[in-house]
Simulated scan of single mutants.
Amino acid sequence: MIEIKEVRPNSKEMQDFLALPKTLYQPTFLTQSETEEKAQLLGEHELSSYYQLEALVAYKEGRPTARLAIIGYPKENKAYIGYFEAQNDWQTVRKLFETVKAKVRAQGKTHLVGPVNASFWLGYRMKLDHFDQPPFTGEPTGLAFYPKLWQRAGFQLSETYGSVFYRRVPLDDHQGRLEKRYHQFLSKGYTILSPKPNDWTRVSAQVFRLLSTLYADFPLYHAISEDSFKELFAPYRYILDFSMVKLAYKDDQLVGFLITLPDYGNLVYQKKHPINLLKLLKIRKKAKRYLILYLGVAPDHLGLGSALTYPIYQEIKARKALAVGALIHQGKITEHYAPTLKADNHHYGLFEMIL
């Protein structure tokens, strides 16, 4: 027998919702933030006021087999599916999605989109390949059968993304185009620098204002307040290596940023006991791999992305580290930086269903 149950605060269903991922993934592949999920289920997350979230757990013969959350934004005809996890059981997943479709149709929604963990700001996309490789920090995870389950349920791939894995930079490598761009912008009066950790609150506000303009046309983008952004990104102060963050100013205005994060694997999702904190500090000091996560350039400063990339490229080369251009919307120019150094690609997708 298959049952679909709604998750109520502090209920058995809530416990089962939070416990299910741990039964599906090996420890090195588990990227669940139980703190984030619990806050979502209780309606206490920093972003909870922006949307309505309803969580469901599917049971087969009394055992939790699949879960997801339905997310709806006011005055929007799309509903989003996030926090999806499931065993490879088509009958259970089919009934779960049928329940979802009935619920969102009753709300007047005409499209289902996912995976979206409630918000653009928290994580979205489904992994499409390389399921045998442990995730880098922030990489979407999933099981190899998820894309087929969603497609069988009637979803179609609507957006694609990729991560570019770069091989270690030879010490004699020379990226002349990047270097040329860097010196061109310096000669035009631009300042490119790394912020100090104590400046993160002020700098993150500047980044937010520029990012909000640049990302406004991205799929799934929903505006949030500056205070919400600061709250979400405050923990970055403790995991960023600020020498690997570059900001570009022209006439005292922030016009570009490149935020590179040490790759902590799934360590950032684990409990913050002393041993894990020491591991984080060690990686932050000298990582084996860096993730190029956020790159933004104001429209009137085209080419600045290459200039921002150059000092990061130099740092990575000097540290003999690896790098990943992470989670790039396919078709963006950043896919083509340093093409001679590319070693591999991971792919991700966003799925949509018209009801």
Rank of each mutant, 00 (worst) to 15 (best):
197 P>A: 13
198 N>I: 11
198 N>S: 15
199 D>G: 11
199 D>N: 13
202 R>M: 12
205 A>D: 06
205 A>S: 15
205 A>C: 12
208 F>G: 07
211 L>S: 15
211 L>I: 08
211 L>A: 15
212 S>I: 10
212 S>V: 10
213 T>S: 15
214 L>M: 00
214 L>C: 01
215 Y>T: 08
215 Y>P: 03
215 Y>C: 08
216 A>T: 07
216 A>V: 08
216 A>C: 09
216 A>D: 11
217 D>Q: 15
217 D>C: 11
219 P>I: 14
220 L>P: 02
221 Y>D: 08
221 Y>P: 08
221 Y>I: 06
221 Y>L: 08
222 H>E: 15
222 H>P: 11
223 A>T: 12
224 I>V: 06
224 I>K: 00
225 S>T: 15
226 E>W: 10
226 E>K: 14
228 S>H: 10
228 S>E: 11
229 F>P: 02
229 F>Y: 14
230 K>L: 09
231 E>Q: 11
232 L>Y: 03
232 L>H: 03
233 F>V: 04
234 A>R: 12
234 A>N: 10
235 P>T: 03
235 P>E: 06
238 Y>D: 15
241 D>L: 12
241 D>Y: 12
241 D>Q: 12
242 F>S: 08
242 F>I: 08
242 F>D: 09
243 S>I: 12
243 S>C: 12
244 M>A: 13
244 M>T: 13
246 K>G: 06
247 L>E: 00
249 Y>T: 03
250 K>I: 13
250 K>D: 09
251 D>K: 14
251 D>S: 13
251 D>P: 09
252 D>T: 11
252 D>R: 14
253 Q>H: 15
255 V>I: 15
256 G>H: 08
257 F>D: 07
258 L>D: 11
259 I>Y: 01
260 T>K: 06
261 L>F: 12
261 L>D: 07
262 P>E: 03
262 P>M: 07
263 D>E: 03
263 D>W: 05
264 Y>K: 01
264 Y>R: 01
264 Y>M: 01
267 L>T: 03
267 L>N: 02
268 V>T: 15
269 Y>M: 02
270 Q>C: 00
270 Q>H: 03
271 K>R: 07
271 K>Y: 01
273 H>D: 10
273 H>L: 09
273 H>V: 09
273 H>K: 09
274 P>W: 02
278 L>W: 09
278 L>E: 03
280 L>N: 01
280 L>T: 04
281 L>C: 00
282 K>L: 09
286 K>P: 05
286 K>N: 13
287 A>M: 05
287 A>S: 12
288 K>C: 06
289 R>N: 06
290 Y>C: 03
290 Y>L: 05
291 L>D: 04
291 L>Y: 04
292 I>D: 00
292 I>E: 00
293 L>N: 08
295 L>N: 05
296 G>V: 03
296 G>R: 00
297 V>F: 08
298 A>P: 01
299 P>I: 01
